[in-house]
Design a protein around this nucleic acid. Sequence first.
DNA 1: ATAATATATGAGCATGTGTTCATGTGTTAT
DNA 2: ATAACACATGAACACATGCTCATATATTAT
Lengths: 129, 129
Amino acid sequence: MTQEALREDVTDECGHDGADSSAPRDTLVQIKENFVDESTTIDMAEMFKALGDPTRVRIIYALLQKELCVHDVCIVLDMTQSAVSHQLRYLRNTRIVKRRKVGKTVFYSLDDRHVEEIFAQTLQHLKHG
Amino acid sequence: MTQEALREDVTDECGHDGADSSAPRDTLVQIKENFVDESTTIDMAEMFKALGDPTRVRIIYALLQKELCVHDVCIVLDMTQSAVSHQLRYLRNTRIVKRRKVGKTVFYSLDDRHVEEIFAQTLQHLKHG
DNA sequence: ATAATATATGAGCATGTGTTCATGTGTTAT
DNA sequence: ATAACACATGAACACATGCTCATATATTAT
């Protein structure tokens, strides 16, 4: 995040004269430049989207307690094997869970220590509200 | 999050004795009961869903740096006023941002200190991957 | 070999989401 | 009063999402 003075031009696509913007133009430009790169922004949104479903939240809560095979997740959540498998694939593609195969059963567990922290922070947010 | 001692029968992991699940039944029941209540699960998912969109992530990044009026958010994100207003309402309903009215302009800012922490954690998750 | 078990996956469908467009509401200026 | 400005919002549309159903793959048992 560079903090230098930037004098780039801001396109006034809004058709306004620019005087009605409450913050000075340079400030807005700087806010724009302080963004993380766009790919990271998209990655963050995809990460949150992966956590943004009740079924997946419940799966993560279960796996926070113990590594589980697919069948056991089905029992804990009381859902069909297909539905659970689809969601586990989603979480796997997002690198939130990992799998370990033993014979014909596949065990799933959390792939990231940060998820627990994120959950804790979010619970605090909900309490405060 | 309570990490109760889940001591149960010795795990006959992948013990495919022709029975249903690999983990003992009582363990699964306990995992089920250790869940936060369902309404909280849903609230968490809704919170993450609110963060799970690139536009809303960018809005939050902007507001992390400075309180902004709607028009300025439009400039920073290069989006229409309607699209921005819709997303701001979404974030307001989720208690992620709050507004402050001054004359005819409305200033938005983050309503929660935890959001910054959640973002930091998520960024770390993405780096590690 | 066949059968049984455990998981994965593509197709289809109902529902949800994010944007645009048009319009509404509230405030300030003339 | 009228006009301009800043923001909010409902409708509509294209697209995404989460489930079910049927089926495929992989491993183990007989």
